[in-house]
Amino acid sequence: MNAWQRLKVNKTGMFGLYFLSLLMIMAIFGPLLSSHTYYETQLPLKNQTPSLQYWFGTDELGRDIFTRIWWGARISLLVGISASVLDLLIGVIYGAICGFFGGKIDELMMRVADILSTIPYLLVVILLMVVVGPGLLSIIIALSITGWIGMARIVRGQVLQLKEFDYVTAARALGANSSWILSKHLIPNTTPSIIVTLTLSIPTAIFAEAFLSFLGLGVQAPIASWGTMANDGLPALRYYPWRLFFPAAFISVTMLSFNLLGDALRDALDPRLRI
């Protein structure tokens, strides 16, 4: 069985995959399905209930929530994926170097990582807001600055353990150099842990963005993000609950889907199970 076949039999994992695929397609094409734009305000039509005209209703400025949800999905996916890819690149390379070379290099590099990890990311975000200005870029940078450390620690731990294996000595005995051993022998053996960490870091990043936007530290109006929409919807919870319900539901189900897919992927991609 190959990885795809093993993924297919995992029902919850496939649910995650379907939902995320749908989310991606809708993030691209969703706004085109509606005749409204995310910034178009129609004050007479504010706080509409979901209807044929406005599928998810409208907010307090009469903006179409359906369109805004897909714009929010764009932001969430962009932040989630780019922050995680940065985490992955930095974390894997940094961790692998630490674990492989060990000694003073390891000691020094891990202490630097420890120091960075003590800085709360909220502080980093606020500082970056001042320097770079509020917006997506500073969120992504802030999440990457603090997010890669977990990945680096996990990869380092794995590499420390794996480099003692005989096949590493065997590769060396056949003339392989360090970078080859790292990239072809050690890092592929850490894929299961990398995938698990990655699937936890994507939803964490998505949630962090929503959370920052909810606090008003994220993307700025009129750009829609699930976090800002939830924030807008919260005061009206008693009278217009759908204004909070839709963004909150999307945040939850997206995070759940990533977690389910990640679990399934770890099982499916584990190279030790390949036949």
């Binding site: 005989d166 096949y167 065997a170 005995a173 056949l174 072809k184 592929p188 190279p271």
Partner: peptide, 18 residues
């Protein structure tokens, strides 16, 4: 490898599983 090749004791761990 090219001039002097080497084989090891334990074939279970001397091959990379992935």
């Amino acid at each position: 490898g090219k001039e002097i090749g080497m084989i090891f004791q334990d074939p279970m761990t001397s091959l990379n599983p992935v």
